[in-house]
Amino acid sequence: MAHDERVTLPSFPTLTSLPAVDRPDLVAPPVAAALATWPGAADIAVVDIDPDLADTAAMSEAYDIPMTAGGNCVVVSGARAGDERVAACVVRADTRADVNTLVRKMLDVRKASFLPMERAVAETAMEYGGITPIGLPDGWRILVHDALLDEPVVVIGSGVRRSKLLVPGRLLADLPGAEVVPGLGR
C-alpha cells in the first residue's frame, strides 16, 4: 500500500483509514515505537476522529460502530508482599473487565483496582481515553478478552484521543506479552 493511501473499511464505512505505520503523527510516541518494530503492525490502520468522541459509547454512536467491535483498555494493579503487579485488560466494549475476581486471581493479589488516571497517563505516556495495549511499558501484562479475537476488526485506542487504531481481532493475541483470557469481559 502506498504511503498515506486512503482506504475505507467495508465494515466501518464512516471511517477512512490509513496504514498506522505510515502515520506516527496520529498515535502516541510509545505506540509509534511499538508499531515500528511489531510484525503485526502492517495490518493495523489508524483513523482520525473528533477527540470529543473518543469515549467508546460516543464514538460508537457517532461513527456507527457496533460496541462488539470496540476494545477498551483499562489498567489494573494490585500488590502482594510489597510487589506491585500491573496489567492492562483489553475487553470488548459491551462488557466490563472482571477485575474483582478473574483479574485479581490472575495477578495473585488480595485486591485489584484501577490505576489512578494520573498515574496511568504518566506511566503509559498516553492520553486518558486513548490508552491502548500497543506500546505499554515493559513488564506489564496484557490480558486480552477472548471474545475480541473473533472480531474481524477491533477499534482500540491509539495513545491519543484524536485517533483510533483498527486491528484485526486475531492480532490482539499476538501482541508482545499478550495473554488471551476466556471470560475476561463480563
Rank of each mutant, 00 (worst) to 15 (best):
G185I: 09
F114C: 00
R141L: 11
R162D: 03
A122T: 07
T101D: 15
D138S: 11
F12P: 04
Y63C: 09
P137A: 02
P30T: 07
G78K: 05
E84R: 14
A54M: 03
Y63A: 11
D108W: 00
T14L: 14
E179Q: 12
L175N: 03
V74C: 12
K111F: 03
L26G: 04
G40C: 12
N72F: 09
T95E: 02
A87Q: 10
S60E: 13
A32I: 02
P137M: 06
E118G: 08
D43A: 15
P51V: 08
M67H: 11
V21W: 10
T16C: 14
W140L: 04
L53Y: 09
D25E: 09
L184P: 00
A122V: 02
R162K: 12
S113C: 01
D138A: 13
D150H: 13
D55R: 14
E179Y: 01
L35S: 04
S11N: 08
I156M: 13
A20I: 07
R104M: 05
E5I: 13
A69D: 14
P66L: 10
V160I: 14
I49C: 03
C89V: 13
E84N: 06
F114G: 02
R96A: 13
E127D: 13
A79G: 05
Y63E: 11
E127P: 03
A36K: 04
C73D: 05
E127R: 02
V31E: 00
R170K: 14
D83S: 09
S113Q: 07
R6G: 03
P168L: 10
R6S: 05
A41K: 12
A41F: 10
T101K: 15
V46S: 06
L26N: 02
T68N: 07
G71Y: 08
R96L: 13
V167R: 07
G135N: 02
V31P: 04
A32R: 02
M126T: 06
D94K: 10
G157P: 04
R162M: 01
T101G: 14
A34E: 05
L18Y: 05
Y63N: 09
P24I: 00
V153F: 10
G183W: 09
D52R: 15
A178Y: 06
V31I: 03
S11T: 13
A87F: 05
A69S: 15
T124A: 10
I49A: 08
D64H: 15
D150M: 08
P19N: 13
P24Q: 00
A81P: 08
A81I: 03
S163F: 03
P116H: 08
H145V: 00
N72T: 08
C73H: 05
G185R: 11
E61G: 08
M67V: 07
G135E: 06
V31K: 01
A36F: 03
E5P: 08
P182F: 02
V99P: 03
R92P: 01
R104S: 07
L107A: 05
I156R: 06
I44Y: 07
P39K: 12
V167A: 08
G169C: 14
V109Q: 06
E61H: 09
R141N: 04
L107M: 03
G139E: 09
E84V: 12
R119K: 11
